[in-house]
Simulated assay, not measured.
Amino acid sequence: MNAGSSSGRFISLEGGEGAGKSTQVARLAAALADRGINMLVTREPGGTEGAEAIRALLMQGDVTRWSARTETLLFAAARADHIEKRIKPALAAGQWVICDRFIDSTRAYQGVAGGIDDAAVLAIHDFCTGGLLPDRTLILEVPIDEGRARAASRDGAAADRFAARGDRFHADVAAAFRRIATDEPERCRLINAAASPDAVTTAILHQLADLLP
């Protein structure tokens, strides 16, 4: 079930570590504001008080703190609260929603890289959200080495539980995102995030042109 209405649109940005999602979320929000579009900018896990509390549980601690199965359920709980309290009300009010990560991150990180079956991830998502999907998902791709260097520059020694995992894990995540984009071309678009920030923003707006008023 896609989110779109006559005015409100749901846009998610996805990608591996260091892909520049947060930067592009801010740039996209500015570009939409210049067009007079009213929007909600949010993130996952997070976006509500309860979901932010779950985020702290997920992102902090040792890499082995939670299994992939437990992570899947925690992400789903945070997402259910986020959608109920923020995303659906914003869409119903005709706002655009720009979300830094959504279900495809769970499919990539806990699903393919974590070994949880995609059908199980989607079944949990369907139960928690009614199967809500973005109108457009922009998947930012960057070489693993470059993404690692960007994330290290950003986080220093404070890498979270996911950024701290090895290259094999992150290669699996990247492959998962590419497969999702290949399997769902109407919803998903791949963006070369190794380009300059300006070029990435231009590419994102190009891939949203059919949704813009």
Rank of each mutant, 00 (worst) to 15 (best):
T129H: 01
A181K: 02
D100Y: 00
I87L: 03
T137A: 13
L140V: 09
D104W: 00
T70C: 13
I98N: 06
K88E: 13
T201M: 09
G115H: 06
H82T: 08
D62A: 15
T137Q: 04
I87Y: 01
A171L: 15
G156E: 02
Q110G: 00
E184V: 06
D145I: 10
R179D: 10
S67Q: 05
A159L: 15
L73H: 11
P89A: 08
A78D: 05
A203F: 02
D118W: 07
E146F: 08
R86F: 03
G156V: 01
A68R: 05
G131P: 02
I180M: 11
E141H: 12
L73Q: 07
A176E: 04
W96K: 06
D117K: 05
R189Y: 06
L190V: 08
T64S: 15
A175N: 13
S196P: 04
R168S: 14
F169M: 07
A164Q: 10
A176D: 01
T72R: 13
A76M: 03
A203N: 07
R187S: 01
I116M: 05
P197R: 09
Q110N: 04
I116Y: 07
A78Y: 03
T202Y: 06
A113D: 01
F177H: 11
R168K: 14
D81C: 11
T72S: 14
T64I: 12
A120N: 09
I124Y: 01
H82N: 12
E186T: 14
H82Y: 01
D145N: 12
A120M: 15
L190A: 10
T72Y: 09
A80H: 11
P143Q: 10
D155S: 15
R86K: 14
R150N: 06
A163G: 10
S153Y: 09
A93K: 13
A176W: 00
S153D: 12
L138Y: 05
R69M: 12
A203G: 05
A164D: 05
W66D: 03
Q95C: 12
A174L: 11
R136Y: 02
A194K: 09
W96P: 01
I180D: 03
Q95Y: 12
T201W: 01
A93E: 14
S67N: 08
A203I: 04
A152W: 04
L138F: 07
L74D: 09
L140F: 08
D104Y: 02
D167H: 10
I191V: 15
D126R: 14
L132A: 11
A157E: 15
A149R: 15
D100P: 00
W96M: 07
P134M: 00
R178M: 09
D155I: 08
D117T: 08
A157D: 13
A176S: 11
Y109Q: 02
D155E: 13
P89M: 02
L132D: 10
I139E: 10
R136Q: 04
L122D: 12
V97A: 04
H125T: 00
F75L: 11
W96C: 08
S153I: 12
W96F: 02
V142Y: 07
L190M: 14
L74S: 07
T202V: 14
A175K: 14
P143Y: 03
G94F: 01
